[in-house]
Structures are given as C-alpha cells and as structure tokens.
Amino acid sequence: MDTNSGSGRPGSFDELIDQMRAQLLPVLWSKWGVEVGGDICCEVEEYAWENRDRLLGMSNVLGYLYRVSQSKARRYTRWSKRTTFPSRFPDVVHEDPQLHDMLQMLSALSPDQRTCVLLVHGFGWTYNEVASLLGMKRSDVNNHVHRGMSRLRTDHFDDPLLADRTTQSQNKENIR
C-alpha cells in the first residue's frame, strides 16, 4: 500500500480519483461504514473536482482530503440523525457468522480504533501509512491498534448481541 506521501503524488485529476478510491475510501468505510463512508467519498470527490488545481500541488493530498472528509461527515452525525458504522449486518449473519460477529465487535470500537485496526490488520497498511493519511503520530496509531486489538481479544468469545457495551458504546462513540 503506497499512500500518497511523496512519490505517490497524483499527476492528474483522474489519478487523484483513483488514489482516493484505493486509499481514502477504505479509511472512510472503516470509520463511517459502507453507506456513510461511500456518501462522504462522493462529496469529497466533488470537492476535489472543484479544487483540483490547488489539490494537485499538495504533497499529502489524501491526508488533506481526509480532513475534508471529517468535515463532511459532521452532518451525518449531527442530531443523531443517522448511525454510521452499523451494528447489524443481516447480509452476512447466515452466510458467515464469524464475519458477522467480527463486524459487530468492530462496531463497538471507537471510530479511530476501528479505523486503525482495520487498516493495519484488515487492509494490510503499515503504521506509517496509516499515520500519514490520518494525520496522526505513529505512536497514536500504535495505541489505537493496541487498544482495539485488546478489546477484540476480550470480546472474542462473547456474543456481541448479548453484550450491552456493544450497542451502548457504539451509540456513544459513533455520534461524536
């Protein structure tokens, strides 16, 4: 995974869109879920088109667009209008119960923990790549991954449907 720091700078708007879909989109899916993350990405693409000349000159354009996506995400969570990373996954509950349980456990993590855990252990990014795109220190990424994995280990054999913390903490942390 070559994130957009340095050598991966896009030369054209098409390349920028490709990079966004390959690298920014997994971040948004991990943080906000498939639907909200996808919607936010569309809005960021629109923003990128409007500001393409300025963006193409940036050294870490994806990191910048991630900050833009955070701003765009606000209206999805304001007034608790919509939950973001879902806690129910009916499409996989029968198909792959283990995956279903893992998605539920992920929904109970804080958004930053979930994002870091999924990017590092799910999508195979390095800590530095995650830190670069999220605009965090590497040590912060390390802490999020460590705490997220610790919580997944703790929850591993629990039934998330029966664990109060799953829904409670998700509602508290997702709507921030």
């Binding site: 989109l25 997994p26 899916w29 991990s30 498939v34 639907e35 993350g37 996808g38 990405c41 569309c42 499409d91 996989v92 792959d96 283990q98 995956l99 893992m102 998605l103 992920l106 855990v117 999924l118 252990h121 799910g122 999508f123 195979g124 994995m149 997944l152 280990r153 591993h156």
Partner: peptide
C-alpha cells in the same frame, strides 16, 4: 484468528462499498 477475520471484514467492506457506489 482475529487477524484472519479482520481481513475478511476488510474484504467484505470493500466489496459492499464498491457495490454501494
């Protein structure tokens, strides 16, 4: 086991996300 399931979760998100968009 957790890491293996996390990779499946990432694959699931990527697949569903691509379908959604």
């Amino acid at each position: 086991e957790i890491e293996a399931t996390l990779r499946r979760a990432a694959g699931h998100l990527a697949r569903r996300g691509s379908e959604y968009l």
